[in-house]
Design a protein around this nucleic acid. Structure first.
Lengths: 165, 165
DNA sequence: GCTCAACTATATCCTCAACAACTTTCCTCT
DNA sequence: AGAGGAAAGTTGTTGAGGATATAGTTGAGC
């Protein structure tokens, strides 16, 4: 009952998953640091950049990232202090406020993204054959859909609904 | 140059990787919490359990996990306080000290592991067909070997060498 | 209209980990 | 043998982020 239990194939699979991911994010995080951005800050910026009007409610940001709303408050605090993001009141619901990507924020993203994409290509996607990569992504999608907390659709609906100002 | 850049396939690939991993670890972390263990504490315990004599030098623990040596100091502090681990001096190198799994620690692991393995099976390995899983692990191995900082063999050699007491 | 529950953002408290400085011990070079 | 440097571990400080409480806002039911 003793030794082989700790070398179960499920343990090794999980360990492999962990090592691959943490190693990769360490590389990514290191490069972002040279641009003065942390991983979560980059995460927030790119989600804003992808959103219509380059803005999202704080709650939606929290739902899309792995942070709580209080965590988002502080990330946006930092980004606002450096001028990459600004807060804007929601006209239809005075409880809500938007985080909006500023011009400086978009410029910063355009500086950072090419290197970021090269990095992912170099350490991740470029290491695999095309069909090998697509199979990997299929498998990851299966796992993600399994473990994903719940519907993000509700939050998305709220966002678009509040956005019709 | 604007919108499609943020939806590059490399971004989505990285996002998929992130979501799958963070979602999975959230599940794992939640279950471990019900046993009074954090993820890094579990990580330390299982690495000790797998090691000969159930012991590792602090430095080797740091190398195997994603923590610095000072981080390991504090984790082992906590585990020692709860009696799952004890420190032991290295007889051949008085700078080094071992973290040793106690009987209570091994018992705790035997309580926790079955559920842990079931969890991994349920949310991860069991979601995929056998050959799909093995291909996933192959791909993860490629990425891990690419991004892995450096040789862990050096640390392993030191450990075994110090262990011949 | 009023009340109450749900929601949104923020403030406060606490845990945890990185970083840097420091102590002790070991090793190498002369 | 002794000096200088490298290595191992601990500790103070800093900062990020979760949990919870709080204040303001909304909407539904009466």
């Amino acid at each position: 009952m003793t030794e082989h239990l700790f070398d179960d194939r499920r343990i090794t699979a999980m360990g492999l998953f962990t090592e691959a991911f943490t190693g990769l994010t360490a590389r990514v995080s290191g490069q972002l640091a040279t641009h003065g951005l942390s991983l979560v800050e980059f995460e927030v910026l790119i989600r804003l950049a992808r959103s219509p009007r380059s803005q999202l409610r704080m709650t939606d940001l929290a739902a899309q990232t792995q942070l709580t709303t209080s965590g988002i408050t502080r990330v946006v605090d930092r980004l606002e202090r450096t001028g990459l993001v600004r807060r804007e009141a929601c006209p239809t619901d005075r409880r809500s406020s938007f985080a909006v990507l500023t011009d400086a924020g978009r410029t910063r993203m355009e500086e950072v993204l090419p290197g970021h994409l090269e990095l992912i290509e170099h350490w991740f996607t470029g290491r695999l054959m095309p069909d090998q990569l697509s199979q990997l992504l299929d498998s990851l999608r299966v796992v993600r859909d399994a473990v994903r907390p719940e519907a993000t659709s509700g939050a998305a609906r709220n966002a678009s609904e509040c956005e019709t100002r």
